[in-house]
Lab assay of single mutants.
Amino acid sequence: QVALSRTQVCGILREELFQGDAFHQSDTHIFIIMGASGDLAKKKIYPTIWWLFRDGLLPENTFIVGYARSRLTVADIRKQSEPFFKATPEEKLKLEDFFARNSYVAGQYDDAASYQRLNSHMNALHLGSQANRLFYLALPPTVYEAVTKNIHESCMSQIGWNRIIVEKPFGRDLQSSDRLSNHISSLFREDQIYRIDHYLGKEMVQNLMVLRFANRIFGPIWNRDNIACVILTFKEPFGTEGRGGYFDEFGIIRDVMQNHLLQMLCLVAMEKPASTNSDDVRDEKVKVLKCISEVQANNVVLGQYVGNPDGEGEATKGYLDDPTVPRGSTTATFAAVVLYVENERWDGVPFILRCGKALNERKAEVRLQFHDVAGDIFHQQCKRNELVIRVQPNEAVYTKMMTKKPGMFFNPEESELDLTYGNRYKNVKLPDAYERLILDVFCGSQMHFVRSDELREAWRIFTPLLHQIELEKPKPIPYIYGSRGPTEADELMKRVGFQYEGTYKWVNPHKL
């Protein structure tokens, strides 16, 4: 086992960053958080920038500027975001240094004079007029057009580079997404736009490419001749908990499936790229999406959770019991969808996408189930092999396979070949997804960000279904809070070829 401390991990990262040409360590950078008073800024962006600063992973002359409508001070920003920093008493001095680099400007999102004030403020910072500028839009999409237009007109660096990070949702359907994309691309070049999907920053999602293309053993079996089906799962054990009003506007397909799960599907299904260059990788992902037809209604199961009468606390409440959810809402909190990649490698292999709230566990994984062994000599005792990439929690890679049961006879039983990170790298604290992705933006690497043509294809696949749901308002199937979801989803999976045995229990190697 390799035991690495946080300091050692960050030392390795620093070495990698400083050796590259793309990370300008000594240049002045300004990180501007648009929507600095909001939840995302408070819980994710400010803490992430602090962790990067604490670990010495930001360029040395980096300033952080918050911008929002609320009249706040840096002290206010500190008060609301610091509880999420997880700072230790030993880091007190470092924390003071961090907040000394912070400033805040209040202004409207659609007022040109406010942006001119913001620009004057940035120019007044040390070497601010020639600094590289990175704008993070932690804002609702309704203000994107006004904000990007004003940034472009008043706040661009004339000497350094300018980059803009856009948070999902990128529209509600193909038409609104196209409108937003066309607007942003009329102001910024594609190499300046970073559409963030934080799932692409997760260690195991990034590991998929290495697993596939750096190991000879997987190449020959990664196709329709050997793989019976692919299941991509995202499960949350909690409901909307008072935030249903926002969720109800989008629903589970827009929230998770059309982005996170579809991105994971691309990494499983794509061909080997010409290189690890950002556009070479994204070219292959677009090719996969172009091979997927629009979702067919007979390959869809929609569910909505109801309270568990035997549960406790939140578990007793259904989705419609959330006071922020519109009365009688038919918005799905669970969806199972089957897609097919219609190309030579994957023809006929079902890709089953499942996601839901208020389920029995927290889990995100990719599961490849292989065909049955031909010419069975073990009297149907063999179960199908599976390769599982567990994204969260407890990152893991393992192969479910058959071995001989101890004893006199040739009785096979299920076991696993474990390729888990935790076994080799004991207690290594890896940077989280937002840390990686923000560092990628500083480096100018777009590999783990969504390109406009990729986004367009993703919406093309799901828009007809979303429009049909909005028009017909089908009643989702009720499922109990804390269950596996509607049984109809299991029946759909069985119908397209997935075999669920229920006889195997994964042993978490992190707890051995």
Rank of each mutant, 00 (worst) to 15 (best):
R254K: 07
R254L: 05
R254M: 05
D255K: 03
V256E: 08
M257G: 08
Q258H: 02
H260V: 03
H260N: 04
L261H: 05
L262R: 02
L262P: 04
L267Y: 01
A269H: 03
M270A: 08
M270E: 04
E271V: 04
K272E: 12
K272A: 10
A274D: 12
A274P: 12
S275D: 07
S275K: 04
S278A: 10
S278W: 07
D279C: 10
D279F: 05
D279W: 10
D280V: 13
D280Y: 11
D280A: 15
V281I: 13
V281H: 03
R282S: 04
R282E: 04
R282G: 00
D283S: 09
E284G: 11
E284H: 08
E284C: 13
E284S: 10
V286S: 09
K287M: 08
V288Y: 03
L289G: 03
L289F: 07
L289D: 02
K290N: 13
K290W: 05
C291F: 10
I292A: 09
I292R: 01
V295S: 10
V295P: 15
Q296E: 13
Q296S: 09
N298V: 14
N299I: 04
V300M: 12
V300H: 09
V300A: 13
V301R: 09
L302K: 04
L302G: 03
G303V: 04
Q304L: 00
Y305G: 00
Y305W: 06
N308V: 08
P309Y: 12
G313T: 13
G313F: 12
T316W: 10
T316Q: 15
G318A: 11
L320C: 09
D321R: 07
D322V: 06
P323D: 09
P323M: 14
V325S: 07
R327E: 12
R327Y: 09
G328Q: 15
S329P: 05
S329L: 02
T330L: 10
T331V: 07
A332R: 03
A335D: 01
A336S: 15
L339C: 15
Y340E: 12
Y340P: 00
Y340M: 14
V341K: 00
E342K: 10
N343Y: 01
E344R: 09
W346C: 04
D347Q: 14
D347R: 14
D347F: 09
G348F: 05
V349N: 04
V349C: 06
P350S: 00
P350G: 01
P350K: 04
P350M: 00
P350W: 01
P350Q: 02
F351P: 06
A358D: 03
A358V: 00
E361F: 02
R362Q: 12
K363R: 10
A364M: 13
V366H: 00
V366D: 04
R367K: 01
L368E: 01
Q369G: 06
Q369Y: 01
Q369L: 01
H371A: 11
H371D: 08
H371V: 08
D372K: 06
V373N: 09
A374L: 14
G375N: 14
G375F: 09
G375K: 10
G375D: 15
D376S: 10
I377V: 12
Q380M: 11
C382S: 15
K383R: 12
N385V: 01
E386S: 06
E386K: 01
L387V: 06
V388Q: 01
V388S: 06
R390G: 05
Q392R: 00
Y398T: 01
T399R: 02
K400S: 00
M401S: 04
K405I: 14
P406V: 08
P406Q: 08
P406A: 11
G407E: 10
M408S: 06
M408G: 08
F410H: 08
P412T: 12
P412W: 08
E414Y: 10
E414D: 10
L417M: 10
L419H: 04
T420S: 15
T420E: 14
Y421P: 01
G422S: 15
G422E: 13
G422M: 11
N423E: 14
R424D: 06
N427V: 06
V428P: 12
K429N: 14
L430G: 04
P431T: 09
D432W: 07
A433R: 01
R436V: 07
L437T: 01
L437F: 03
I438D: 01
L439D: 02
D440K: 07
D440N: 10
C443R: 10
S445G: 15
S445R: 13
R451I: 03
D453V: 01
E454D: 06
L455P: 07
R456A: 15
R456F: 07
E457N: 08
E457A: 09
E457H: 12
E457Q: 13
E457T: 08
W459R: 04
R460N: 12
T463N: 11
L466P: 02
H467C: 10
Q468H: 13
E470H: 13
L471M: 08
E472I: 09
K473T: 11
K473L: 11
P474Q: 12
P476I: 11
I477H: 14
P478S: 14
Y479E: 03
I480E: 13
Y481H: 11
G482D: 05
G482Q: 08
S483L: 08
R484P: 04
G485W: 03
G485S: 04
P486M: 04
P486D: 05
A489P: 02
L492V: 08
L492F: 11
L492K: 06
G497Q: 08
Q499G: 13
Q499K: 15
Q499D: 12
Y500L: 06
E501D: 14
E501G: 10
G502D: 15
T503M: 14
T503Y: 11
T503N: 15
K505C: 15
K505E: 14
V507L: 11
